[in-house]
């Protein structure tokens, strides 16, 4: 069991998972999002190979209206 923080909310997964699997589980496959883990960007090109680890702090962002 791992616990990761997603936009400040704790979320548990039964085992370490790839970023691709994580995005799929969250329903964001094919969506325009960007990911940061522990203050560092996770490049889209590494989603398939990057693993989420226990204690990771993730930020998932989108573009919204703003001035």
């Amino acid at each position: 069991m791992i616990t990761v923080s997603i936009n400040g909310e704790p979320r548990q997964f039964s085992q370490p998972i790839s970023v691709t699997a994580f995005i799929e589980a969250m329903g964001y496959s094919g969506k325009r999002i960007a990911l940061e883990r522990n203050g560092e960007i996770i490049p889209r090109s590494t989603f398939a190979t990057a693993q989420l680890n226990d204690g990771d702090k993730l930020e998932i962002v989108v573009a919204v209206g703003g001035g």
């Binding site: 936009n7 909310e9 964001y28 325009r32 998932i60 962002v61 989108v62 573009a63 703003g66």
Partner: peptide, 29 residues
């Protein structure tokens, strides 16, 4: 100009997106 914000985790991931209405192909973001 656009802002960068956290996704709303509780909400439907298929809700309309600014990028669809204001496409980066037509406007410089």
């Amino acid at each position: 100009t656009v802002a960068i914000r956290r996704v709303n985790l509780g909400q439907n991931a298929n809700e309309p997106n600014l990028l669809d209405t204001v496409p980066p192909s037509k406007f410089t973001y």
